[in-house]
Every structure is written in structure tokens, then in C-alpha cells.
């Protein structure tokens, strides 16, 4: 039997009649049509579907849409106004090369959001335990940890950490001087990245 629910998503109230077995992530993606929240494992392991439910990070593949009735949901789309400045976490991920394919990123950012809410100056260990429920298969996590620290610094008004990649290749600085920023550099180990001036 269908059940009528009202959920406030990113500040906007949505009312819909849903089957009780509809998962919250399907409600968000297919009823509200907000596809920034991803479905990865569908078994509450990977964290790609992480959203905030009444301010707390949860895995929306393991919560029913009816459980969100009368509650407030925040998704990645709700972090920053469209066309406006990015949220410090989004900016942090961008500046610190904290994503490659980007599939885990919305969940990773929503989880980090609650983490920074409790503690805007977390240690590396606290961040790693804090994102223990979010899998990333590209980055190796190091730059995600840096991005969260960077966002924390920005949110508390502290000096921003250096975002230069740790990886250096021979002649990089000379090449920047010669060709300018944004040049694609290949290392002797076959890795590439684009150099930037900041």
C-alpha cells in the first residue's frame, strides 16, 4: 500500500506517495531527480550514497524513504547554491586533487561534512576513522585526507595548507617557467599530472 510522505530535501518540501519498500536513495534519485547521490554497492559498505538525514550522515541505500517522513535531507546538491561559490569541502577536494573518477566524492563530502561539524580541526587519524565507511578506489585516500584538512582550515579561518602535489618530476619547475601552468607532465614512472602555479 502506498504511503504519503513529506521530506524536506535541501530546503524544499517534497510530498509523494511511495511504496514502503522504496529506499531513500531511490526516492532522492528517481522521485526528486537529484542524481548527485550515487549508488555504489547497495549494501551499506561503500558510502557512495551518504547523505545527511536531520544533519547526521547516513547511508541512504539502507534507509527506507518512509523513514525520512517529516525529516530533512541534505544531499551534495544542497551544499552550495547553484552557480554560487563552492562549499569549502568541494573547493578542498578540487584544490587537493582528492578525486579522480568522482564516483565516491558526493558521499565522501557528505560524510566529511558531519565530521567537520563536530571537529573542524581533525587529525589525520580522526579523518581516516571518520571516513572508514567510504570507499575510494582511485586516490589512495591521501589527498582526500588533505582535502578535509584544507576544508577544516578554510571553515575555521586558519591558514590554508599547501595544495601542491607531493609528487614531483624532474625539470617540473623549469617546464612551468618555460611553458606556463597547466602543462601535462609525464614522470619516469608513467604517471601524469597537470602542473598549476598555485
Amino acid at each position: 500500500m502506498l504511503k504519503k510522505i513529506t521530506v524536506t530535501v535541501n530546503g524544499t518540501e517534497h510530498t509523494a506517495e511511495v511504496e514502503p519498500r522504496l529506499l531513500l536513495v531511490h526516492f532522492i534519485r528517481e522521485v526528486i531527480n537529484l542524481t548527485g547521490t550515487h549508488i555504489g554497492c547497495d549494501t551499506s559498505s561503500c558510502g557512495a550514497c551518504t547523505i545527511l538525514l536531520d544533519g547526521k550522515s547516513i547511508k541512504s541505500c539502507t534507509v527506507l524513504a518512509v523513514q525520512a517522513n517529516g525529516k530533512s535531507v541534505t544531499t551534495i546538491e544542497g551544499l552550495a547554491p547553484e552557480g554560487g561559490p563552492l562549499h569549502p569541502l568541494q573547493e578542498g577536494f578540487k584544490e587537493n586533487h582528492a578525486l579522480h573518477c568522482g564516483f565516491c566524492t558526493p558521499g565522501m563530502i557528505m560524510r566529511a561534512h558531519e565530521l567537520l561539524e563536530h571537529n573542524n580541526n581533525p587529525t589525520e587519524e580522526e579523518i581516516r576513522w571518520g571516513i572508514a565507511g567510504n570507499l575510494c578506489r582511485c586516490t589512495g585516500y591521501n589527498n582526500i585526507v588533505k582535502a578535509v584538512q584544507w576544508a577544516g582550515a578554510k571553515m575555521r579561518g586558519a591558514e590554508l595548507p599547501n595544495t601542491e602535489p607531493e609528487f614531483r618530476c624532474k625539470n617540473a619547475r623549469r617546464r612551468i617557467a618555460k611553458y606556463g601552468a597547466g602543462v601535462r607532465i609525464s614522470s619516469n614512472t608513467g604517471q601524469h599530472f597537470n602542473l598549476s602555479t598555485n
Binding site: 547516513i58 547511508k59 560524510r111 565507511g133
Partner: peptide
């Protein structure tokens, strides 16, 4: 609690 699942699961 630190060893049970992960922070999101522990929120529920």
C-alpha cells in the same frame, strides 16, 4: 563502538 561498522551505520 569504534569497531562496529562505520560512522554512518553507527548513526542509525
Amino acid at each position: 563502538t569504534k569497531l562496529i561498522a562505520d560512522p554512518q551505520v553507527r548513526n542509525m
